[in-house]
């Protein structure tokens, strides 16, 4: 196989990590929203935790994206 092609395929595979990040972020915001609708008064207090959870979930996906970028350009 052409090494260039293998590189692209590998980068594409590494981007699969973003699937998990997408699910995770969706979960976090979805659950925050349903919790906030049940108890709106408690929602603002958990906003910081929401952002932390978002950042933590997003970071795992970005690790994969990073690998993809390194494969592509590194």
């Amino acid at each position: 196989m052409d090494p260039q092609a293998a590189k692209f395929i590998g980068a594409g595979l590494a981007c699969f990590a973003l699937i998990g990040a997408g699910i995770g972020i969706g979960n976090i915001f979805g659950n925050y929203l349903s919790g906030a609708l049940r108890n709106p008064s408690a929602a603002p207090g958990q906003f910081t935790n929401l952002l932390i959870g978002f950042a933590l979930a997003e970071a795992t996906g970005l690790f994969g994206l990073l690998i993809a970028l390194i494969i592509l350009f590194g």
């Binding site: 950042a55 997003e58 970071a59 970005l62 690790f63 994206l65 990073l66 970028l69």
Partner: peptide, 12 residues
């Protein structure tokens, strides 16, 4: 993780 989170976000 602290470093990569910031770096990867900005770079991506």
């Amino acid at each position: 993780s602290l470093a990569v989170r910031l770096f990867a976000n900005m770079m991506a």
